[in-house]
Design a protein around this nucleic acid. Structure first.
Length: 424
RNA sequence: GGCAGGUUGCCCGAGCGGCCAAUGGGAGCGGACUGUAAAUCCGUCGGCUUUGCCUUCGAAGGUUCGAAUCCUUCACCUGCCA
């Protein structure tokens, strides 16, 4: 344990501190005793995603080092929406936000410890915001926010052209007020968030200083981007959701497995709880024999276990091995095959019906979004049945093609797989 | 309030009466090369019962044999003036 580095050094080594207020002062406070910190999550969707996960694991690292987490779910800020460069958000109803608050809260809880000396606390900013009167808000909070400073913020500036509502413009006041309240009522002295939140983070630090005269801290984690600088977190169609109903554990595992070589090390450091020696070892192996994708496999395994549990991880690894193993599908026993296909997604067809054509199968499994799209895929040579290319759009699988008497493996391109089960 | 300009497929952006499902770029998708990586190259990129048909170019109406392209009204956006 003596070799364990200071948590701030660890965070820096992991590349998790992109901006910070005063790290030396923060370090001094941590050395003097546990620091209470908070991180907020706005319920803007029914599930958290990869970007939120980075904040969650960062909170966990701080808690593991003895500090006290306050996980905030934005029942109030979620009603308003923070300004994004892409444009104005559409408002969600109170009912929708409430249900998302519950889901988000449930997603965060497994990652933190709610017992012991430094037990975590869940808070909801709706509790101290909803009943606040407009007059009090404008006098007590609004007075501390110079509009000229607010206008200078990057997000706001880019939005001035296209337009920004007063609602979103005011968001920073709400988040800053959260920090003030948590500082007053709970002694919170540190907030962190994504680097896109930097303006909101410093807004809170500033408000606490003006109102309470206290020097509290903030840091921002970097934006995790793909090797080409574009945003991460897109799989086919959607974000990298943590909710298994929105992104299957299989697809979640595949996302991490397919990460670019040059990003593996960075992601291992930022997201996993592997220690420095383990990560450096993985990086060394990956650099020497990249084709083995040792780093990607470790990353995918670690992340899937973290979010979906060890049992599920075993299933998706088995599925990946079966479907991408290179062996003949016929050699797989039915249990392995069925399990693998269930991870990838199965479409059931009734027995006794004539077998659909390749084009219809691609559409039925969702691999293609229209029949025209399916035809194109076949024409382009991207359609496979049981790992063999099919070049005729009207090809109809023969009864002999059914694996174990009832399974078909459909593939589009290299990575998109779907199962078909013929069952009564 | 006045004047001028704009609204095109996922995004940006050409087209300005027929040759327009609509140039080009990006994203996406497929192929080749590889390692379920990156880069590169090639192809593709509204729908369908696909040598043809249907629905698209802010909305509704109109002119015309024929409109994304012309006219009218409406909505929204931008710039200049007040």
């Amino acid at each position: 344990m003596s070799s364990r580095p200071h948590v701030l050094d660890d965070l820096q080594w992991r590349g998790l501190i992109a901006h910070a207020t005063d790290l030396d002062a923060l370090r001094a406070e941590m050395d003097a005793g546990p620091v209470r910190f908070y991180v907020g999550f706005d319920p803007t969707a029914p599930s958290l995603h990869m970007g939120n996960l980075l904040q969650i694991v960062t909170a966990r690292r701080l808690q593991d080092a003895g500090n006290v987490p306050y996980a905030l779910v934005g029942g109030a800020t979620g009603m308003i929406g923070d300004p994004r460069e892409v444009g104005e958000r559409s408002l969600n109803s109170l009912d929708v936000v409430r249900s998302w608050v519950e889901r988000v809260r449930a997603q965060i809880e497994p990652f933190l410890s709610f017992e012991g000396a430094n037990a975590a606390t869940m808070v909801n900013n709706y509790d101290w915001t909803a009943s606040l009167s407009t007059i009090d808000f404008l006098r007590d909070i609004g007075k501390h926010f110079p509009v000229n400073r607010m206008l200078a913020r990057d997000v706001v500036r880019t939005r001035l052209e296209a337009g920004i509502s007063y609602t979103e413009f005011s968001y920073v006041l709400l988040q800053s007020m959260d920090y003030l309240n948590l500082h007053r009522d709970h002694g919170v002295r540190l907030q962190f968030g994504g680097s896109d939140q930097w303006g909101n983070l410093t807004g809170g630090v500033e408000l606490v200083r003006r109102v309470e005269g206290a020097r509290v801290h903030a840091f921002a984690t970097p934006l995790i981007t793909r090797a080409d600088g574009t945003k991460y977190g897109k799989t086919e169609g959607g974000a990298v959701w943590l909710d298994p109903d929105m992104l299957s554990p299989y697809a979640f595992y595949q996302f991490w497995l397919n990460v670019e070589d040059q990003k593996v090390g960075e992601l291992l450091r930022a997201f996993t709880f592997l220690d420095r020696a383990e990560i450096e070892e993985l990086e060394a192996v990956s650099a020497e024999k990249p084709f083995l994708r040792t780093g990607q496999k470790a990353l995918a395994e670690h992340m899937t276990a973290l979010v979906h549990g060890a049992a599920e991880t075993g299933h998706v690894q088995a599925a990946a091995a079966a479907l991408f193993g290179g062996g003949t599908l016929r050699e797989l026993d039915e249990r392995t095959l069925a399990g693998a296909l269930h991870e990838a997604g199965v479409t059931t067809l009734p027995t006794g019906q004539p077998m659909p054509t390749m084009v219809d199968l691609l559409v039925a499994t969702g691999l293609s979004k229209s029949r025209g799209d399916a035809r194109r895929t076949v024409d382009e040579g991207g359609a496979y049945l049981n790992n063999e290319r099919v070049s005729d759009p009207a090809h109809v699988p023969a009864p002999a093609d059914l694996l174990a008497g009832r399974w078909l493996v459909l593939r589009r391109g290299k990575k998109s797989l779907a199962g078909v089960e013929v069952a009564g």
